[in-house]
Design a protein around this nucleic acid. Structure first.
Lengths: 237, 237
DNA sequence: TGTACATCAGTGAACGCGCGTTCACTGATGTAC
DNA sequence: TGTACATCAGTGAACGCGCGTTCACTGATGTAC
């Protein structure tokens, strides 16, 4: 980021932007997205309100920036371990799911920011879709080795028609698993990813928003069981 | 509600309360919980702002009322079909899951109100926990017939210690499945319910918040597959 | 049946708040010759 | 190396908004004798 070629002014600018985002992130943690307020950020960072507009064009611009960062961090959690995953697809799936859960548990407010209820009136910038896909990318490769059992075959069928019609889906498949849209493994790869996503999201979001409180359950146990069952239904080795 | 014994005044009061809630519900649908504003409700219902305080003690009181209603309606969706479920536990599970999904799809904003990200700074009234349990009650009975396979056994183990320590859990079990906390079927009953809940929540909340958009997937297909897989892992008949 | 009183619905004015954002301006830092 | 200018960071005052909520009050509806 602060490369050697950057001027002192640019470096100062980056630092201030960082401070602003850090405070915004704390407000996010304390009261959710609605609690992120420019006026209060300004006070805390020691600037007047209008000065923030040197750094972010608007409140939405600041939120977008937080969202982008959150996606990138989430992607780092899964992509970061993608290089040295266990050889066994089943073990790899568990490792990925655990990494996903761990990140969400460490950064619950950031998880809710990108995966929680949509912010009313807020329009996500178009590049978030690609970022969202990156988070799940490594799952695609794992499920490319799957042989779907009867229960999940209807999902696979839907996925196959989707990947044939949607270029973004095909790109995704190619980038993370090196498969073409017509590859026989394509359907399983995407169907498994989709099912993983929705199951992880269910458990993680209930955990993160405290709904398991008082139930004496650890999200990790649930996730492990779910991934195990899912691995069975795709006959992962 | 408007029973014969109620005075005209009481009936008028109930009607106005209903109008207020209906408008609040529309605001909720249009902009989420933050968009529910007493001032705007008053204008729409044709009253001055302060007049609303005759009907609800505060904004939070109004929100609580909406939340209670939403839980009750959700419970009606699952409990309503509990009486004539198919004899086969597997078929019963599918029927319950479909009913859950259908209700959420019909009332997305109400679903998000009770199951979405927690409202920052909002304290749920204590009776919501009991209402939340009612929604999932019928699942408990279905899974009481389950014989957990290896994958889900760790979840069952956690559930068994929970039900022994927590009176509310024991009550739940007794009320919906007629089991005592020490019954050998208790663990499976609650573990299956918990897993159903988190899986349904994952798929339903992604669907309801539009995150499957452009993916050519029907939530129903995903839910069916997930419940099938879950039924397998509890060896439901 | 009429009267006296209590209860309740609703009003208008007002308070105080924090919010995002705009504007015209000042002073410091960088850049070109 | 010094000077002239451009760029940029930051300020203070102000705008307009909608919000939840309180208060003292009026007028209608119900209730008791």
């Amino acid at each position: 980021m602060a490369d050697a070629t950057s001027s002192p002014r640019a470096r100062y600018r980056e630092r201030t932007r960082g401070e602003i985002k850090a405070i915004a992130l704390r407000q996010l943690a304390e009261g959710g997205a609605p609690a992120v307020a420019l006026t209060r950020i300004a006070k805390e960072v020691g600037l007047s309100g209008p000065a923030l507009y040197r750094y972010f064009a608007s409140r939405d611009d600041l939120l977008n920036s937080l969202i982008r960062d959150a996606y990138d961090e989430a992607a780092r959690a899964t992509e970061g371990i993608a290089a040295d995953l266990p050889a066994s697809p089943r073990a790899a799936l568990h490792a990925l799911a655990d990494a996903y859960l761990d990140w969400a548990a460490e950064e619950p407010h950031r998880y809710l920011l990108i995966q929680g209820s949509p912010l009313p009136g807020y329009q996500a910038p178009p590049d978030t879709l690609a970022r969202a896909r990156a988070v799940l990318g490594p799952f695609v490769k794992v499920f490319a080795t799957g042989r779907p059992t009867a229960s999940v075959r209807p999902v696979v069928a839907e996925t196959e028609t989707w990947v044939r019609d949607d270029e973004a889906a095909a790109d995704w498949l190619r980038e993370y698993a090196g498969l073409t849209a017509t590859d026989p493994r394509a359907g399983a790869a995407l169907a498994g990813t989709l099912l993983s996503w929705s199951q992880l999201h269910g458990t993680v979001s209930l955990e993160v928003s405290g709904q398991y409180a008082g139930m004496g359950h650890r999200a990790r146990t649930l996730v492990t069981a779910q991934m195990d069952v899912l691995a069975d239904s795709f006959a992962l080795e």
